[in-house]
């Protein structure tokens, strides 16, 4: 980019995590998974994963236990809404900041 050729300064980029910036910074509410309630975590089975299916940013892993990548999670809350076990709670980011995190 920026080599002086016409049209070289434009919005073209290789896709990959972080191409949109560290979007986790946008988050106001943080989804936190209660592993006691989470179906795959609780049953130790590759089951449910509604959070993984519905996450619009693809930042939840399809693993036992599901892990949320807070570097890119924008905190939309869809996972908490879709979790059939109500295992995901949206918690104020400021609560974590107050803890010095």
């Amino acid at each position: 980019m920026g080599n002086g050729k016409y049209g070289s300064v434009k919005s073209h980029s290789d896709p990959g995590p972080g191409d949109g910036g560290k979007t986790g910074l946008w988050r106001v509410l943080r989804p936190v998974i209660d592993l006691e309630k989470c179906i795959p975590a609780k049953t130790d089975k590759m089951a449910c994963f509604n959070c993984w299916v519905y996450c619009p940013d693809g930042v939840i892993t399809k693993t036992i236990q599901p892990v949320i990548d807070y570097e890119y999670c924008k905190g939309c809350g869809i996972c908490a809404e879709e979790c059939p076990a109500k295992a995901i709670t949206m918690i104020e980011e400021s609560d974590f900041k107050n803890e010095g995190e």
Partner: peptide
């Protein structure tokens, strides 16, 4: 594959390779 004309924030930022990518204002000035 390439990302074309995705959300470009007010300030510049690094692309996935760690290089500074032009922001909206740089693109428009160009």
């Amino acid at each position: 594959p390439q990302n074309l004309n995705t959300v470009t924030l007010p300030d510049v930022r690094e692309n996935i390779h760690g290089d500074l990518a032009p922001g909206y204002m740089e693109i428009r000035r160009s």
